[in-house]
């Protein structure tokens, strides 16, 4: 009998907790910053701005905002490790009052050619729905990072010159 009474009470308690956890309604927006190159190439930098807003009536505690990058070239679809693309991958705030916003600037160094999609997401310590904003898509153009006409003369020339000098020294005894 006691067990039968306890089960609905526990279920009600969990429902109240879940309602409190999702009380904070976060929304996040992402825009490319003005001044980005129209046709970005490897080595260029792109900047983006995100705005996180607490749309709910209550403050949200322990806010985390982060960016994710995926490659979307046909046949090369994969998440990208941001380690080398961006020094700033996330930001946190202890509390976001109701109606308040957090703006953040994100800078990307374009490491490899291809088509990419950048996304921003936000979560709170209390859980609930993960807020995600519109994705920003961009294409990074190829830039030759090595030129055979520079490398080959050095790579072949130095050993050849040294071998010639060695031969000359050897013949002279």
């Amino acid at each position: 009998m006691a067990t039968k009474l306890a089960m609905p009470l526990l279920a009600a308690a969990f429902a109240v907790m879940a309602a409190a956890a999702s009380a904070g309604e976060l929304s996040v927006d992402l825009r490319a910053a003005p001044g980005n190159p129209a046709r970005p190439q490897m080595g260029d930098r792109l900047s983006f701005r995100s705005v996180l807003r607490n749309e709910g009536p209550a403050p949200v505690n322990g806010v985390m905002v982060w960016i994710s990058l995926i490659r979307i070239d046909p046949g090369n679809e994969q998440p990208v490790d941001l380690e080398d693309w961006s020094g700033q991958k996330a930001l946190t705030a202890d509390i976001l009052p109701a109606g308040a916003t957090i703006e953040a600037a994100w800078s990307l160094r374009l490491i490899q050619a291809g088509a990419y999609r950048l996304m921003v997401a936000a979560e709170s310590r209390d859980g609930g729905r993960t807020a995600s904003g519109p994705a920003a898509e961009f294409t990074v153009g190829e830039k030759p990072v090595v030129q055979a006409q520079r490398v080959l003369p050095v790579a072949l020339g130095f050993p050849l010159v040294i071998a010639t000098v060695m031969l000359w020294r050897w013949r002279r005894g």
């Binding site: 490491i111 490899q112 990072v145 090595v146 490398v151 790579a155």
Partner: peptide, 12 residues
């Protein structure tokens, strides 16, 4: 150096 030249899909 020659290994680098022979790779056609290099990132920075």
């Amino acid at each position: 150096s020659v290994l680098l030249v022979s790779d056609s899909e290099l990132s920075l």
